[in-house]
């Protein structure tokens, strides 16, 4: 079971308190009705599914109930960092290179 640090509650809590909420940093297009089928497919269905560091959303469902983002290594399942919604994607290029 994962231990997850909620950046709002500022503590580590067990995984069953959280809901995984898919890949992070996917901006919903503002002109969604004007997207081509290709663009819509990319936005709606295509995910990066990395073997390595994934950026993803989590929701502290049974706690503060807020969404936040995380960077996690999908090979080890270890969290590298969790951060609040609205903060930019952290630069983990150092981490990625070390792999």
């Amino acid at each position: 079971m994962l231990l997850i640090h909620c950046p709002y509650c500022e503590e580590e809590r067990p995984e069953p308190e959280f809901r995984h909420a898919g890949e992070a940093h996917i901006a919903r297009a503002e002109n969604i009705t004007e997207l081509s089928d290709e663009e819509f497919e990319r936005h709606f269905f295509i995910r990066s599914n990395p073997k390595g560091i994934a950026f993803e959303r989590w929701r502290h469902m049974h706690g503060c109930a807020r969404f936040f983002n995380a960077a996690r290594d999908t090979l080890s399942d270890k969290f590298l960092v969790t951060y609040k919604i609205g903060t930019p994607k952290p630069d983990l290029s150092g981490e990625i290179r070390r792999k």
């Binding site: 079971m1 994962l2 067990p14 995984e15 069953p16 809901r19 995984h20 599914n49 073997k51 994934a54 993803e56 996690r72 999908t74 090979l75 080890s76 399942d77």
Partner: peptide, 13 residues
């Protein structure tokens, strides 16, 4: 499990 992973393990829950 709820999260994506290549670890071939999952949560005890």
């Amino acid at each position: 499990d709820q999260y994506t992973s290549y670890s071939q393990t999952g949560s005890l829950a």
